[in-house]
């Protein structure tokens, strides 16, 4: 059975069916991401402390450029079909898919960096200060840790009270394991672990690794959703967006690989399919346009 109005517009709507369908779908997507954006605002405004500088701005900027470039190439691929240039369509669509894979590659690089980066919370203030001194030096240790805390949470102009055992000591575990926790280290019968703290704020001088007793640690967490509200909402929104990029790339790749068949069978329908896929792709770009400043810059 042939699907009706796949090429010609329906007389009542003035649109071919798939176009109305994709716009209704995008309307539901607006509500989905709108709900998540509301949640983000609610969580952020309601939080006592909200971290800054947890993600790399140059990496996020690069990915923004990649998505914008892909939006240009996908619309050019559609225009090429309308001009009867199948070769150009293939070229632009391949570039779009390359951009999508590039975006996902960079994102997975970012995620991996988070999954191997840890915060350690110590049992009490005295214990915390002992490790700060071990990490950053006897004289400047406590001040260096305090500075990292103040800069992360932008506490310069707030009345928030500094308490040493609130301070997360950020850094990397020996061997860069993924998703290690206090429990997983305890299960592995580890009594101590090697920890390389992050460089003091504003420098790139990584301190030497320090030996940390597991019994001194209150909590150990990689930068994963359960680390904090910030990472919970960060991973929820960016992973959902990433899944959209992946889904869009699969659909666009299908159009590319079946283009020859469709071009012979019904070139107008191929153009319409690419238009509908392109509309979804632009929406994915549009979501990122708001995500980038909210997650990376503000």
């Amino acid at each position: 059975m042939e699907i009706p109005y796949a090429v010609k517009p329906r007389p009542d709507t003035g649109l071919y069916n798939a176009k109305l369908g994709i716009w209704l779908f995008l309307a539901s997507e607006v509500m989905l991401f709108g709900g998540l954006f509301s949640s983000y605002i609610l969580l952020r405004v309601g939080a006592d402390l909200w971290p800054h500088g947890m993600v790399s701005i140059p990496v996020g900027t690069f990915n923004t450029f990649v998505l914008i470039a892909s939006s240009v190439t996908v619309v050019m691929s559609w225009a090429s079909l309308k001009l009867g240039r199948l070769g150009d369509f293939k070229k632009y669509m391949a570039l779009t898919i390359a951009c999508a894979l590039g975006f996902l590659g960079v994102k997975s690089f970012e995620y991996h960096a988070k999954f191997t980066h840890y915060d350690v919370w110590f049992k009490d203030a005295a214990t915390a200060e002992k490790y700060f001194k071990a990490a950053y030096g006897e004289e400047k240790g406590v001040e260096a840790a305090r500075k990292l805390f103040v800069e992360r949470f932008h506490l310069h102009n707030t009345k928030a009270v500094y308490e040493a055992n609130q301070v997360q000591l950020p850094g990397h575990l020996e061997g860069n394991p993924l998703f290690a926790t206090h429990r997983s280290l305890a299960s592995a019968k580890k009594e101590t672990f090697q920890f390389t703290p992050d460089a003091p704020f504003g420098t790139h001088d990584h301190p030497k690794p320090i030996e940390v007793k597991l019994s001194d640690v209150e909590r150990l967490s990689a930068y994963v959703p359960k680390h904090s509200t910030y990472f919970a909402i960060y991973f929820t929104i960016t992973a959902l967006h990433g899944l959209h990029v992946l889904g869009g790339a699969i659909v666009l790749a299908y159009f590319l690989f079946t283009a020859n068949t469709w071009w012979k069978k019904n070139p107008e329908q191929l153009a319409n399919r690419v238009e509908v896929g392109g509309l979804f792709w632009h929406f994915v770009d549009l979501v990122w346009i708001f995500l980038f400043p909210i997650i990376y810059l503000l």
Binding site: T13, G14, K19, L20, W23, A27
Partner: peptide
């Protein structure tokens, strides 16, 4: 088309 504006 008007239909799309209506949806939006």
């Amino acid at each position: 088309r008007k239909m799309i504006y209506g949806v939006l």
